[in-house]
Design a protein around this nucleic acid. Structure first.
Length: 285
DNA sequence: TACATCTGCACTGCGTCAGT
DNA sequence: ACTGACGCAGTGCAGATGTA
């Protein structure tokens, strides 16, 4: 169907095709009988309803995750006002626990590396590592990183939206990406998964957004902001891991809903395709 | 001095809106 | 309905600046 929309579109330049009504109306389509239309639309509406319910569940689980994150990793101000004993917890500067924008990794033997444009990193901390490039093609002009490093989008609105991730599974353990990422390499003092959660926190995003620099449409967070950002963290490694496990579980629940929504969209599209194909094959010409 | 990093800006691709 | 202007998000280049 989509190829017909393209075929009937035209414009002054190839990159700005427009589909005008007369041409749109001229596209050949097979219309099912009215009773069939009602039957099809009621079935498709069921799928839409299911997707809506799952979207609400996903939104709820994200809200619960944010609340959990705030409770398990309180801000310094909130922690001080809670009256708890702070001896098992310590205030860290991000610059003390990660190396910021480290030197680019060495070239792997076969030269293959992952490549992450901005779109490959989600706002929920997930990464699409399907893109591969040759090391030589990307080693200049793009920041390099390795498995275990953390990415944070530096430019508005990607930063405010929470784009960033803990990297794993890169091709040969090495990758390069958009120039609009800061790369953070954990020094090993704190569990990297916990640092990733700190970078997802509302406190970090809000303070970063307030301290962005640059012209109106091109605001970015500075490396200095990242280095000087302070957060509270338990000293005990096992406690760090326990917090990570709880927060990761909350993330997985939200991700499961996302996967279910994607599956429903695919199923609905397939169903629509089958119905239209069936209608076309049985149509009286 | 060479290389890395930062930052502004041109550009692409897409959408929206207002005027004709 | 049609079109030009403009905004937004993202990419990548290039000059300025920092650093080993």
């Amino acid at each position: 169907m989509q190829h017909l929309l393209w075929a009937y579109s035209y414009g002054l330049a190839d990159d700005r095709l427009r589909l005008y009504f007369d041409d749109f109306a001229a596209i050949p389509v097979v219309i099912p009988r009215f009773e069939d239309q009602q039957r099809i639309s009621s079935k498709l509406a069921l799928w839409d309803k299911a997707a809506q319910v799952l979207e609400k569940l996903a939104a709820n689980s994200r809200a619960e995750k944010r609340a959990l994150l705030h409770r398990l990793l309180p801000t310094p101000t909130h922690y001080a006002s809670s009256g708890k004993q702070a001896k098992a917890w310590k205030l860290f500067r991000l610059g003390d626990v990660v190396d910021l924008n480290p030197r680019r990794p060495v070239m792997p033997e076969d030269g293959r590396v992952s490549f992450l444009p901005m779109e490959a990193v989600s706002e929920q901390g997930r990464v699409d590592i399907s893109r591969e490039r040759q090391y030589q093609d990307v080693c200049t002009g793009h920041p390099g990183f390795s498995d275990g490093d953390l990415l944070v989008a530096k430019i508005t609105p990607c930063f405010e939206n929470g784009k960033g991730a803990l990297l794993a599974g890169l091709t040969n353990g090495v990758g390069f990406g958009s120039t609009e990422f800061h790369v953070l390499r954990p020094k090993g003092m704190i569990e990297p998964r916990l640092i990733a959660q700190v970078l997802q926190s509302r406190e970090f995003r809000n303070r970063g957004a307030a301290e962005m620099e640059g012209s109106a449409g091109q605001k970015r967070i500075s490396a200095d902001f990242l280095r000087s950002f302070r957060f509270l963290c338990p000293m005990d490694r096992s406690e760090q891991l326990a917090i990570c496990d709880l927060l990761d579980t909350a993330d997985q629940v939200a991700h499961m809903y996302d996967l279910a929504i994607d599956a429903i969209v695919v199923e609905k599209r397939a169903l629509l395709q089958r119905v239209m194909a069936q209608t076309a094959s049985t149509a009286v010409i």
